[in-house]
């Protein structure tokens, strides 16, 4: 078991290093500091201006170790990322850490309920649909799911702000406040929108899993023993289909932290998603790099945790 965990950890570290290398290639080599500077100060800027910009933002050194083994951007990039020294924003020189700290709270207040409700509503509903498989309820459910999946999230957002916010006045149209007393009313609408946007695909996926599970031998055995259909679904199918469902759920956990990009931005929630959107709009490469890195890091950690817990549950996994 220990060997497996160690191997898994090692592979996680390798993946994270891979991500860092990828980010370096992307943001230092593909988009060279010269490119970045030119994009920041304009295509027609003079070489001197570009040099100044690079110096100001710490990009005025050679990229690769073979150009200068002592002081190069590659080693810098890895060292800083691995010691969680995120540095300053390229756009306004504010420390990125502060931004992450400020953004984490609002992001979590939006994404955690979204995540929990998504599971709490998605799993029972898909179980419900799977229970009625090949009946009108199932077919209607599937059609609804496909339609819901096909609508762009932009339309959901625009529609909700217009309908729920402006016409029905249930919640503020947008905004955020950190005080506990009023926080719920700000995140309510984005949560509803987020649910509408994700439930279609989720229910469809879970339903397939459940339906597939019902065709297995043990289910037939249970039925043959005289178990009622409800009992079969509730006990056997749900329990056995839980692993693929959980995998899908666990993979979403990192997104709790990186925030819901569009929702935060449209509803004026100053979370990490908003930070990312601001970074995009401000060509703020250092912040963007940090966000991708953190997202990947969390993903890798979540994956290791799932894999290890699988191995604990199912000894066969370890041998693979």
């Amino acid at each position: 078991m220990l060997a497996y965990v160690l191997r898994r950890l090692l592979y996680g570290v390798v993946t994270v290093l891979g991500v860092l290398l990828f980010l370096f290639i992307l943001f230092f080599s593909v988009a060279s500091p010269d490119n970045m500077a030119r994009r920041a100060v304009g295509e027609k800027a003079s070489p001197k201006v570009i040099e100044n910009w690079k110096k100001e933002h710490g990009y005025d050194r050679p990229l690769w170790p073979w150009q200068d083994p002592k002081s190069n951007l590659l080693f810098d990039h890895f060292r800083k990322a691995l010691t969680f020294e995120f540095g300053k924003s390229d756009a306004d020189s504010a420390p990125i850490v502060e931004r992450l700290k400020a953004g984490a709270g609002p992001s979590l207040t939006l994404t955690v309920p979204l995540f929990v409700l998504g599971v709490l509503i998605g799993v029972p509903l898909s179980l419900f649909v799977a229970f009625f498989r090949n009946t009108y309820i199932d077919r209607m459910g599937l059609v609804l799911c496909v339609v819901a999946m096909s609508v762009s999230i932009l339309l959901y957002i625009v529609g909700a702000q217009f309908l729920i916010g402006k016409l029905l006045k249930w919640f503020p149209i947008s905004g955020f406040d950190r005080s506990i007393a009023v926080i719920a009313r700000f995140v309510a609408m984005p949560i509803v929108v987020g649910l509408a946007a994700e439930l279609g695909a989720e229910i469809r996926l879970y339903r397939t899993v459940f339906v597939e599970e019902t065709s297995r031998d043990y289910v037939r055995t249970a039925r043959a023993k005289g178990c009622g259909e409800a009992r079969v679904m509730g006990r056997h199918v749900l329990r056995n289909a839980l692993i693929p469902v959980l995998t899908n759920v666990v993979i979403q956990i990192p997104f709790l932290f990186t925030g819901a990009l569009l929702l935060e931005s449209f509803f004026g929630i100053p979370g990490l998603g908003s930070v990312t959107v601001d970074a995009i709009q401000g060509n703020d490469f250092s912040t963007l790099r940090t966000m991708v890195y953190i997202g990947a890091l969390l993903f890798v950690v979540a994956q290791i945790l799932t894999d290890v817990s699988y191995a604990l549950v199912d000894p066969r996994v370890r041998l693979e």
């Binding site: 993946t15 891979g18 990828f22 997104f255 991708v292 993903f299 890798v300 994956q303």
Partner: peptide, 8 residues
């Protein structure tokens, strides 16, 4: 593959 897949 796993490197690319680990980024959101």
């Amino acid at each position: 593959m796993s490197t690319l897949a680990s980024m959101p």
